[in-house]
């Protein structure tokens, strides 16, 4: 085997390709996060439903998805959906899998956030005759989501770092491209290192973004409009 050395020329040559992959990675994370947010809120609300059946269904779904590996869920969606006549692109499959998987984690975060809202807030909302809708959207959610912000940020970053799993269904994200480049050129050092560095950079940016958000919305008082 060749001696391990760093080839700057090769690194610069493959960087643009990897950045193309980074776009896909970021897109999958962004769309996956949005879906996870919606799934999380919906499941959190179902968990609090007055109907027994809905509560337990939501609970079952959450437990089931959280206790099976993401990779299996990715494969499952990828191979099963065509059987039932739905053809999803690898990106759509990936977004769906990430969104559902992390949505279940976020559901528990949001539920804890909602339960953490002081009981007096619900009572004030009722005494002021706010509707259920406005009680949730004007009073409870802003406070619950604020409380959930740090944990949500962590899950989004975790999701971002799990995107290489989507290479299993041929999504051309960063990791998949690095592997392809590596096998075509018999050089893995540069592409893999660059992918690692890109992950690091994006994770740091995301972590800083979460910190800035936390500062923009101090828990003791923040303006929504």
């Amino acid at each position: 085997m060749d001696e391990l050395y760093w080839d700057w020329g090769f690194a610069l040559e493959v960087l643009p390709v990897l950045l193309q992959g980074a776009k896909v990675t970021l897109l999958a994370t962004l769309l996956g996060s949005l879906l996870a947010l919606v799934v999380g809120v919906v499941l959190a609300l179902l968990r609090r439903s007055r109907l027994h059946f809905l509560r337990w269904t939501a609970r079952g779904v959450i437990e089931f998805i959280r206790s099976t590996p993401l990779l299996i869920q990715i494969f499952f969606i990828y191979y099963i959906t065509p059987e039932i006549g739905i053809n999803l692109s690898p990106l759509a499959t990936g977004v769906l899998a990430l969104g559902l998987h992390y949505g279940c984690y976020l559901a528990e975060v949001f539920r804890a956030g909602i339960e953490g809202v002081d009981h007096g807030q619900w009572e004030a909302a009722r005494a002021l005759n706010l509707s259920r809708f406005h009680t949730y959207f004007d009073v409870v959610f802003p406070q619950a989501l604020r409380a959930a912000l740090p944990a949500t940020g962590n899950y989004v970053i975790a999701m971002f770092k799990e995107t290489p799993q989507l290479s299993a269904i041929t999504l051309l994200e960063m990791m998949q491209l690095a592997k392809i480049i590596g096998s075509e050129n018999f050089r893995y050092l540069e592409p893999l290192t660059l992918v690692g560095v890109l992950y690091l950079v994006f994770s740091l940016i995301a972590a800083i973004a979460v910190l800035l958000l936390e500062r923009k919305f101090p828990p003791e008082g923040f303006r929504l409009r």
Partner: peptide, 22 residues
């Protein structure tokens, strides 16, 4: 007893919220 003001709204919005919504 414990006020139960909405902590994420300005004082003015606290007062105006229900008149607007209800």
């Amino acid at each position: 007893q414990h006020f139960n003001l909405f902590p994420h709204m300005s004082v003015l919005r606290n007062i105006a919220e229900a008149p607007i919504r209800v």
